[in-house]
């Protein structure tokens, strides 16, 4: 554990709390892509099956349980509790385009051709692109509630902080994980446009609006 990873994990935690807070405070899941949230739930379930057979640490155990439970809770909030506030007609990104390539890439580029390793690899690839439906929705509506942008920023910062974490681990432990690093670079890259608007406008008190 190093400072970059700890801060990254805390940003990830924060993003989930912000999202739940947004839904409960506005009593609405407007502006949130159900598809992206469903993909995250799938990411956590496929990655954390190792909870069943591989003990790492209490920190690791608790965090994994939290991420799985909270992602399912968010799906519940969107699908049942605040269902009328969710508009599927603007959440139209085809997730087949993300699931298919992630699955086939995980069959080809993995560390070991075993069920659990392929599930882990699939979850890494899928996570890197799972934000697409959300960003697509943002692009379509052209604006977002400020609290939603805080959620997205925390989520982006989480993976961005994993990059210095990997550099640090390479230097101190000689550890290199090409799959995680490649996917992490892609994932962080997807946020660059968003970060630009967030840091130049939202943090200066302006509304998140994309140029027409």
């Amino acid at each position: 554990m190093n400072i970059f990873r700890l801060l990254g994990d805390l940003a990830h935690l924060a993003s989930i709390f912000v999202l739940i807070h947004k839904i409960q405070k506005t009593r609405s899941c407007r502006g949130i892509s159900f598809k992206t949230q469903a993909l995250y739930a799938l990411v956590f379930v496929t990655r954390y099956v190792d909870l069943l057979y591989h003990w790492i640490s209490l920190y690791n155990f608790v965090m994994k349980l939290f991420f799985m439970a909270s992602s399912c809770y968010i799906l519940y909030l969107m699908k049942f509790r605040y269902r009328p506030t969710h508009d599927p007609s603007i959440d139209t990104f085809k997730i087949e385009y993300l699931l298919g390539p992630s699955f086939f890439l995980s069959l080809i580029f993995n560390y070991e051709f075993s069920l659990t390793e392929i599930m882990w690899t699939f979850s890494i690839y899928l996570e890197s692109v799972a934000i697409f439906p959300q960003l697509f929705m943002l692009q379509r509506t052209g604006e977002a509630e400020t609290i939603t942008t805080h959620y997205l920023a925390a989520l982006g910062i989480y993976r961005a902080l994993y990059l210095p974490n990997w550099i640090y681990r390479y230097i101190t432990q000689d550890m290199v994980d090409p799959i995680a690093i490649t996917a992490g670079l892609v994932q962080t890259g997807l946020y660059l446009d968003f970060f630009y608007v967030y840091f130049t406008k939202v943090l200066h008190g302006q509304k998140f609006e994309l140029p027409a």
């Binding site: 990873r5 994990d9 990830h12 190792d50 591989h54 790492i56 640490s57 690791n60 965090m63 994994k64 991420f67 560390y111 070991e112 390793e117 882990w120 994993y162 974490n165 681990r169 432990q173 550890m175 290199v176 994980d177 090409p178 799959i179 995680a180």
Partner: peptide, 10 residues
């Protein structure tokens, strides 16, 4: 050898 150390990450 798989870099399994990374599997300790979230």
């Amino acid at each position: 050898e798989a870099p399994r150390e990374s599997h300790d990450e979230l």
